[in-house]
Amino acid sequence: MIQHMSYILQKRMLIVLFLLIPLVLLSVFALYPAVYLVYLSFMSWDGYSPEKTWAGLANYREVFANKEIWAAFGHNFVYLGWGLLQNALGLFFALLLNSRLRGRNVYRVVLFMPYIMNGVAVAYMFNYVFNSEYGSLNTLLHGIGLDLLAISWFGSPKVVNHVLGFITLWKFMGLNMVIYLAALQSVPSEIIEAARMDGASRWQTIVHVILPNMTKVIELNLFLTIIGTLEIFDLPFLLTKGGPLGASETFLTKTIDTAFKFNNFGMASAMSLTLIASVIVVLSIQKIVTRRWSD
C-alpha cells in the first residue's frame, strides 16, 4: 500500500508518525496536568476523596488574603538578591579566566565543580559548616576569638535566608561563569583589538564593546536565575524545614505544605498558578530592563 503512495504523501505520513509519539507524550505529561491544575484551583479537594467541591474563586481570594503566604514569597527575593550577586561574580570570573592567566583551566574546573554536585550532598555538607553546635564555621570563630560572631546560622530568622542564599551562590555561580565564558569566547577578537588600537582602556573595552555583545547571554542567565530563585525548594526543605518559625519558608515550600501537610489541594493549585503568574510578571520586568540597557 505504501509503495503506491506518492513521494509527497509518504513524506507527510512519515513526518506525522515521527511527531505522533512526542505529541502524545507532551499531551499526557504536560498539557493534561496543566489543564487539570487549573481545574483543581477552582475546587475544594483534600487529595484523596473521590468527590471535589466547586469553590470558584475562593482559593484565589484566600491566597491573596493570606499574609503568611506572601511573607514566604518575600523570602524568595532574598534568594533573588543573592542570585544577582551570583551573576555578577560569574561574569567577573569569566572575564578573569578568559585572559591569559596561568592555570586558568584548573580554576575553571574548580569553580564549576559545585554545580555538578548533588543538591542533597551540598545541603548536608553545609549543614556541617553552619551547624550551631558542631559546625566548622563556629568552631573556627571560637578558635580565633570571635565568639560574638558564632551564632545559630539556621536558627536566626534574620540570617537564615542569607545563609541559604549564599549556598545557592556557591553552587550555581560556576554555571553562570561557564555560560559567560562561552559568550566571551564568541565575541569577535577583531572588534576588541580595534577598540584597543583606538586607545580604549580595558574597562572601557569591557563596558562598551564586550558586554553589548553579550546582552542575549546575560538576559538568558538572568532568566534562569529568576526562575530558580522564585521556585527554590530543596535547600530550605532539607536544611531548615521552613524554620525557625517559618522564617525560611519559600512560596514553593508553603505550596507543598498546603497540599501534602494540610491536604488542601485546591488552594495549593491556586498557589501554583499564582507563582507562575508572578514569575511571568518578574520576567517581563527583567525583559524590559535588559532591553532598555541593550538599546
Results as ranks from 00 to 15, higher is better:
247 A>Y: 11
250 T>N: 02
215 T>R: 11
261 K>I: 10
177 M>L: 15
220 L>S: 07
218 I>Y: 04
263 N>Y: 15
251 F>E: 05
191 I>N: 05
228 G>F: 03
176 N>I: 13
253 T>R: 06
264 N>S: 13
241 K>I: 05
211 L>E: 04
249 E>H: 09
226 I>L: 15
177 M>H: 06
256 I>M: 01
211 L>D: 09
190 E>S: 14
235 L>Y: 15
199 G>M: 09
255 T>K: 03
252 L>W: 00
185 Q>L: 12
258 T>D: 02
221 N>W: 04
245 L>M: 15
174 G>V: 07
208 H>Y: 12
262 F>G: 00
248 S>F: 01
199 G>N: 07
197 M>E: 11
251 F>Y: 12
222 L>E: 10
197 M>I: 15
264 N>Y: 08
269 S>D: 04
214 M>I: 13
260 F>M: 15
242 G>S: 08
236 P>N: 05
243 G>W: 10
264 N>R: 13
209 V>H: 04
178 V>M: 13
268 A>Y: 00
184 L>H: 05
213 N>L: 06
180 Y>S: 09
207 V>L: 11
190 E>A: 15
256 I>G: 00
269 S>A: 15
191 I>G: 04
260 F>L: 15
217 V>A: 15
179 I>T: 06
226 I>K: 14
184 L>N: 01
211 L>A: 10
209 V>F: 01
195 A>E: 11
259 A>D: 05
211 L>M: 12
242 G>I: 13
201 S>Y: 01
198 D>L: 07
222 L>T: 07
193 E>T: 14
219 E>A: 14
202 R>Y: 04
247 A>F: 10
177 M>T: 11
178 V>H: 03
210 I>P: 03
244 P>F: 00
255 T>S: 11
188 P>M: 06
238 L>Y: 03
241 K>A: 08
180 Y>K: 08
270 A>E: 13
215 T>M: 13
260 F>T: 03
205 T>M: 09
199 G>P: 06
235 L>T: 06
196 R>D: 07
222 L>P: 03
219 E>N: 06
251 F>D: 06
233 F>W: 02
191 I>L: 14
219 E>G: 05
255 T>I: 12
231 E>D: 08
180 Y>R: 12
252 L>G: 00
184 L>W: 04
269 S>N: 03
198 D>F: 12
242 G>E: 01
217 V>T: 15
266 G>P: 09
227 I>M: 14
250 T>R: 00
228 G>E: 00
229 T>V: 14
